[in-house]
């Protein structure tokens, strides 16, 4: 971590305000600690004896719905992370360059943060119906609304991408703003094409932000619950939906604990591998 920081600093010739950096970091830890403590307080002083309610059977993870659901959860996260990058990177680039329509790009990428996710989801629920506005528009033109315009896996992936977009754009923008404009101007004056500038200057220098954005989006996607429930039309089974059934309805908390541990472990492994990859690919 420290090595990479110094590397970035020397490369950019900037002086970091290390005092503030520490304050931010410490604040982050404080927030996480407080959140954990408060969730325990609000739940009314839960004791650890709770989790010993039943024997924990790790072997059950091999039985039918669980491995498939885990695979699907990871797959949906991956797809929406890649889709978020595909849509978010050009938007971030447009915002950084103050290109034509950059304010529109800014508004587009931050729109999902302006409203409660639940309301956004109900809006999308109307879109993914054969009687919805999009289907009506299509039939107005004289075409038959496509069959994928119903709740299901595709709807879940599209809406996840939409909701996660700002979470990619912010770190990507932070990365892009660290690319000195002078480098770009210098490259241009030496006759570099736009593609070369992207490939040789912007992507390598902004790489950490992009990787960070991907990591955040992927890990958040793993825990998505309301989106698969509402837009999956009951057809999409992810670890979070299985978890909720066991926690709230079947009252089988030992299985729920195992699923939660698996989800948590997957997120940690994903973060580690993304950090590792970013170090290997960006710092060299």
């Amino acid at each position: 971590m420290g090595r990479l920081d110094q590397c970035q600093v020397t490369r950019h010739g900037e002086q970091p305000s290390s005092g503030w950096l520490t304050v931010y970091r410490r604040a982050a830890h404080l927030v996480i600690g407080c959140q954990a403590a408060f969730s325990i307080l609000i739940a009314g002083g839960i004791t650890w004896g709770f989790y010993r309610a039943g024997p924990i059977e790790w072997s059950m993870l091999a039985r039918p719905p669980y491995p498939q659901a885990l695979g699907r959860t990871v797959w949906f996260s991956l797809i929406s992370a890649i889709a978020t990058m595909t849509v978010g990177y050009p938007l971030a680039l447009a915002i950084r360059r103050r290109a034509f329509l950059w304010r529109t790009a800014l508004a587009l990428s931050f729109l999902p943060l302006c409203c409660s996710p639940l309301i956004i989801l109900y809006g999308w629920l109307a879109v993914f119906q054969q009687s919805g506005p999009l289907a009506r528009l299509i039939s107005l033109v004289g075409l038959r609304p496509p069959s994928w315009l119903t709740p299901g896996s595709l709807a879940v992936c599209i809406v996840m991408t939409y909701l996660l977009l700002p979470h990619f754009v912010v770190p990507a923008l932070l990365g892009l703003f660290r690319v000195p404009e002078t480098f770009v101007i210098a490259a241009k004056s030496l006759g570099a094409t736009n593609w070369q500038i992207q490939q040789r200057i912007i992507v390598p220098l902004a790489g950490r932000g992009i990787w960070f954005g991907l990591g955040i989006v992927f890990v958040q996607g793993l825990g998505f619950y309301v989106t698969p429930v509402l837009l999956g039309g009951g057809k999409v089974v992810t670890v979070s939906t299985l978890l909720d059934d066991r926690l709230n309805y079947l009252l089988d908390w030992s299985t729920a604990a195992v699923l939660a541990a698996v989800l948590c472990g997957t997120a940690i492994i994903a973060l580690w591998s993304i950090i590792g990859l970013s170090r290997r690919l960006v710092s060299t």
Binding site: M1, G2, D5, S18, L21, T22, R25, R26, A28, H29, L30, I32, G33, C34
Partner: peptide
């Protein structure tokens, strides 16, 4: 920075 991070974790 690493020491400071650890100190932060311990504090929280």
């Amino acid at each position: 920075t690493r020491t400071r991070v650890y100190r932060g974790i311990v504090a929280s």
